[in-house]
Every structure is written in C-alpha cells, then in structure tokens.
Design a protein around this nucleic acid. Structure first.
Length: 301
DNA sequence: ATCCAGGCTCCTG
DNA sequence: CAGGAGCATGGA
C-alpha cells in the first residue's frame, strides 16, 4: 500500500464546493463518498485499483489530491492526476463559456448564480453508460435504487489502508449476470437485457470507449446507437458525462425540458425543439449548459 | 386509478 | 429521415 499527495491548481474561477454539492445528491454518484469540500472514491485506472481522495481549502482555490494503491508507480500516479483533471474539468478555460450569458439574461443569471461550477463527469465511461441505461424512463430515485442493486449483485470492493471502498464491476461480470435475478430485483426485462448485453459488448471490445472518444460527435452518436439499449439520449448522456464532450445537447431529456420550461416562463415543459433552439446560443458549450440546468433542477432553483 | 419518470425499438409514411 | 405506437416498471 503506497500513498502520495500533491496539490492541484484549477484555472479560475473554480468551485470545488459546487462539484461536491452536485455529487452529494446526484443519483449517478453511487460509488462516491462526498463531503462539503471532500471527495473520495476507488477507481480502476490503467489496470490498477486506486483510491482517489480530494480535499479543498475553504476558498477552494487549490485542491489537495491523495492517491493510494497497492503498487503506485509513476504511471499510476500520472493517470490519477489526469483522471482528476478530466473528471472535474480543472484545466478548462471558461472565459468563453461565461460570455454566453451576455445574450441570454435567463441563462446568464444561472452562470452568475453558480460561479466556478464545471461539467463534472461520471468516473468511468462504462459506469456512465450503465447508469444512463438504467436511468431511462424511470424517476431519479428509482434509478438510483436500481444502480445500487446492480452494485450489490456485481460490484467489487477494494481495500485501502484497512478501509473498504466499492468499485465498479468489470464489464465481463455484468455480462455474466442472470437476467432472472435482475428481474426479481425490479429491472424490466429489456433493461436487464440491455445492461447484460452492453457489459458483453464492452468486455469483448466491440464497444470501445477510446474509439468513441476519438470520433467527432455525430459519428460517435451513430456508433453508440448501434448497440441495443443505446438511443440518442443515452449516447448523448455518455458523451457528456462519461467522456466530457463539451458541445452536446440532450434535448429529449425530460429534466432539461422541465427546468428550462420553468425558467423561460412557458408554464409547461419545453419541447425538444424548443430546447434545441435555445441551445443554439450556447454553441460550443451545450453540454456545459445542460449541466448547469441539471444543477439548477437538482437544487430546485 | 391515473399520470409521470433524466427512453428505446420497431414500424410506417 | 420524421413521427408515433407499444413497451416496461415503479413512485406520487
């Protein structure tokens, strides 16, 4: 067991507190331990299970990162640092994003209300994919329950300095799940089949996240929707929260439609076309805009 | 009961 | 390609 600590400097303005606020109640954050200004989780990087711990000072201008692992060599440490920078978007130059508010007072007030909030990713692409599929067409509380069930049935545990942390199951483990067991645990027939099939696709290499990340957005969507259970919404959700693509708008997302309809005074949910239309002014940063809206929705703003 | 929930597949025009 | 029926499972 080896441990290394170092400090990270995000570009300004940055708020680790906002990231924690989001993760503390996000239905997707079922493997994460989140405090007001602290975060910890076990994650598999480069074939090794690592424990990542992050804390921030009160002003949160810099982060303290602690990485632990059984064999923490230079490569593993480097991977952990890159993971944190990517997952929390520490290196983004957000000045162009902040200027988006100029032409749209409603969205502008959102940017002003959450200074330093950044698109915060789900730790692993496979995790983002499964959580998205599980979250299809069910309410958020129930989706969280199903995610916890999947972890209970197939998740792993890592031990770091005598303490146990949950880990995402390996894709092959998910592929080997018994659909009847999932059904007995409130998965629908098709949701069980999607989850198992996608586990197999990732395990076999047929679904390759590195390849997806290298594709332009439109082609990535086409590639992803070729897999059963992955429609446009799921593909976009994965691209945004799993791979950190900056400019994708999941206009069919019910939550997005609800919060946008409310803020723009429609007195109803916005339609998909309305969301898509509004999003044109967020060009280049549409994923970030979606994330800001989700953040507002989660907070009841 | 009825409607809704961070949709998907498959089938028509 | 666009639109819609049918689907599946709980929660409020």
């Amino acid at each position: 067991m080896q441990t290394t600590s170092l400090s990270l400097q995000p570009t300004a303005p940055y708020s680790f507190t906002h990231a924690c606020t989001y993760l503390a109640t996000a239905s997707t954050a079922v493997l994460d331990r989140v405090g007001e200004r602290s975060y910890a989780r076990a994650v598999r990087l480069g074939g090794h299970d690592l424990l990542i711990s992050i804390t921030a000072s009160e002003e949160a201008s810099s982060l303290q990162l602690t990485v632990s692992g059984a064999s923490l060599d230079e490569d593993a440490l480097e991977a952990a640092v890159a993971w944190v920078r990517h997952t929390f978007a520490l290196d983004e130059d957000v000045s162009a994003f902040e200027r988006l508010g100029a032409g749209d007072p409603i969205f502008g007030s959102l940017i002003a209300r959450y200074p330093g909030l950044r698109l915060t990713l789900i730790a692993e692409p496979f995790e983002a994919l499964l959580w998205a599929v599980i979250g299809q067409q069910v309410n958020i509380a129930f989706a969280r329950k199903l995610r916890l069930t999947l972890l209970e049935l197939s998740g792993r545990e890592g031990e770091f300095a005598g303490e146990r942390y949950p880990l995402m199951p390996m894709p092959a483990t998910v592929a080997a799940l018994d659909p009847t067991v999932l059904r007995a645990r409130q998965f629908s027939q098709q949701k069980a089949s999607y989850v198992i099939g996608l586990g197999a696709a990732v395990a076999s290499g047929a679904l390759d996240f590195a390849a997806v990340a290298a594709l332009p957005p439109a082609e990535a969507r086409t590639y992803l929707t070729g897999f059963r259970g992955v429609g446009r919404w799921t593909a976009e959700y994965l691209l945004i929260r799993g791979l950190g693509q900056r400019d994708s708008i999941p206009a069919a997302d019910v939550g997005l439609q609800t919060v946008i309809g409310r803020h723009y005074g429609y007195g109803r949910k916005a339609t998909e076309a309305e969301v898509r239309g509004l999003a044109e002014q967020w060009l280049g940063w549409r994923s970030w805009a979606a994330f800001y809206w989700w953040f507002a929705l989660q907070r009841g703003d």
